[in-house]
Amino acid sequence: MQVRIIAVGKIKERFLSDGIAEYEKRLTPYLKLSIVEIAEEKRGVHLSGSKGQIIKDGEGDRILAAIPERAYVVALDARGTGMTSEMLAARMRDWQLTGMSSIVVIIGGDLGLSDAVLTRAALRLSLSPMTFTHQMVRLILLEQLYRACRINSGEPYHK
Rank of each mutant, 00 (worst) to 15 (best):
E37P: 01
G44H: 06
A71L: 08
T119W: 11
G108L: 02
E69L: 08
G109N: 10
G58R: 13
M83L: 11
I103C: 07
S114G: 13
G80Q: 03
G80T: 01
A39M: 03
L88H: 01
T28S: 14
S85N: 13
Y30M: 04
G44N: 07
G99W: 04
G109K: 09
T28A: 15
K25M: 13
I67G: 14
V117Q: 06
G108A: 04
L47Y: 05
Y30Q: 06
S102W: 10
R62W: 02
E22D: 10
G112D: 07
E41F: 02
T98S: 12
P29Q: 12
T28M: 13
K56Y: 10
Y23L: 03
D77N: 08
S17K: 15
G49P: 02
V36G: 03
K32M: 08
L33Q: 14
P29C: 11
D110R: 07
G44R: 04
A21T: 08
L64G: 09
K32C: 05
E69M: 05
I54W: 07
E59K: 05
I107G: 06
G58K: 14
I11H: 03
R62A: 13
I11V: 10
I20E: 01
I11K: 02
G82Y: 06
G52E: 15
T119E: 13
I103D: 02
E37N: 10
E59Q: 09
R26W: 06
E69P: 03
A89C: 08
E22K: 14
S34Q: 15
V36S: 14
E59P: 00
G80A: 05
S48W: 06
L31V: 03
E13L: 01
G108D: 04
Q96M: 09
V104Y: 07
R93S: 15
E24F: 03
A90L: 11
V36F: 14
V105Q: 01
G108W: 01
D94R: 14
R62E: 13
I63D: 13
Q96W: 07
P68K: 08
G19M: 05
S50F: 00
K25D: 13
G99Y: 05
R70M: 10
P68C: 10
L64M: 06
L64Y: 11
R62H: 11
K32D: 15
F15Y: 14
G80I: 00
L88T: 01
I54A: 12
E69F: 08
D77Q: 09
E40L: 05
A90P: 01
G58E: 08
D77K: 05
K12D: 10
M92F: 11
R91G: 06
I11M: 12
D110K: 07
S34G: 15
V104Q: 11
I35L: 08
A116L: 03
Q96T: 10
T28L: 15
S102A: 10
L113D: 04
L118G: 06
S48K: 07
M100Y: 09
L16I: 04
F15Q: 06
S50L: 05
I35Q: 10
D77A: 07
